[in-house]
């Protein structure tokens, strides 16, 4: 952060009520798409009409990891890759909260990949917004699990030869109830998606293809942030009926955007409640148990009971 830049009090930001203005200016580079992504998020939450006091944001580590710090919500900036289990704990301990994970592709799909697929499988009622900039920005442009084949990064000086993950495909295959992909230029549609996800039950996943002007574009001759946005605009096609597993991203082809999955199924907690409530109540019928056998609630040995 440049300490010499002073934000004047009278400058008004339309999202001031949900941003920590005392932390501006942010640390993101000029031309980065994260600012637009955060604004889209703010618009989406407002659109969903959920009181800000009940919205909680959790981030991991990286450029996107800093999002939690700039939103004036209960916000938790956790460790690398672990935003999802932290959010799972928050949500299950207070089911009234709307819990949103806002983190990057490396954080959510490399170091934190296991948590993502399992949270989607369990259908924990959280929203995961993944900013995909194809690279590790904060640490200086190293290869990510999203880096397209052939792209250059600071740890792929001869070009990336590892096939990347298709994030929407992985989320859908893991069981997410809502899966969408937009780019940083689709602000209105992205905000709508965020509003939809905020109101929707279950594990919701939104990928935001976002320009990284400072490292990804520089290493891959992509020009400025604005150049990248116009490239995204040209390459994007909106197709809600596309199969999310068949629309990987590469250096040149179409960026297929849309809401690919939007279905209803019971969440983790609903399953807990529906699945075991009756059985639990039977077991807790204490009086009945006293008269019968107190076996189960007393200490059992770990061996089988003959």
């Amino acid at each position: 952060m440049n300490k010499n830049i002073q934000v004047k009090k009278e400058i008004y930001h339309p999202m001031e009520d949900i941003l920590r203005m005392d932390r501006m200016p942010h640390i993101w580079c000029p031309g980065c798409g994260l600012g637009s992504d955060v604004v889209a998020f703010a618009q989406g939450i407002k659109k969903a009409n959920i009181p800000f006091d009940k919205v909680v944001i959790v981030s991991g580590i990286g450029c996107t990891g800093r999002v939690a710090g700039y939103l004036r919500l209960d916000s938790y900036h956790t460790t690398h890759g672990r935003a999802i289990p932290f959010a799972t704990g928050l949500k299950l301990a207070n089911r009234e909260l709307t819990v949103v994970v806002f983190s990057g592709d490396g954080d959510l799909f490399a170091i934190g990949g296991n948590h993502l697929i399992h949270a989607a499988r369990r259908n924990v009622d959280i929203n995961v917004i993944c900013v995909n900039n194809f690279i590790y920005g904060m640490t200086g442009g190293q290869n990510a699990p999203t880096t397209p084949l052939g792209a250059y990064s600071s740890t792929a000086p001869y070009g990336n030869f590892e096939p990347p993950f298709n994030l929407v495909g992985l989320a859908a295959a893991s069981g997410a109830t809502y899966v969408a992909r937009w780019t940083s230029i689709h602000i209105r549609r992205l905000a709508d998606s965020i509003a939809t996800a905020a109101k929707k039950k279950g594990f919701c996943f939104i990928e935001i293809v976002t320009p990284c002007a400072t490292v990804f574009a520089r290493k891959n001759k992509g020009g400025t942030g604005l150049d990248l946005l116009s490239e995204f605009k040209n390459r994007s096609v909106i197709n809600h009926s596309a199969d999310p597993t068949k629309i990987p991203l590469d250096m040149e082809g179409e960026i297929v955007c849309g809401e690919f999955v939007n279905e209803e199924k019971p969440t983790f907690w609903e399953n807990v409640k529906e699945g075991i409530r009756e059985k639990v109540e039977k077991k807790v019928d204490w009086e009945k148990m006293q008269s019968k056998r107190k076996r189960k609630l007393y200490a059992e040995s770990s061996d089988d009971l003959s």
Partner: peptide
């Protein structure tokens, strides 16, 4: 990590 999250929810 989950128990940290749960604790922050009280």
């Amino acid at each position: 990590t989950s128990i940290l999250g749960a604790s922050w929810a009280g």
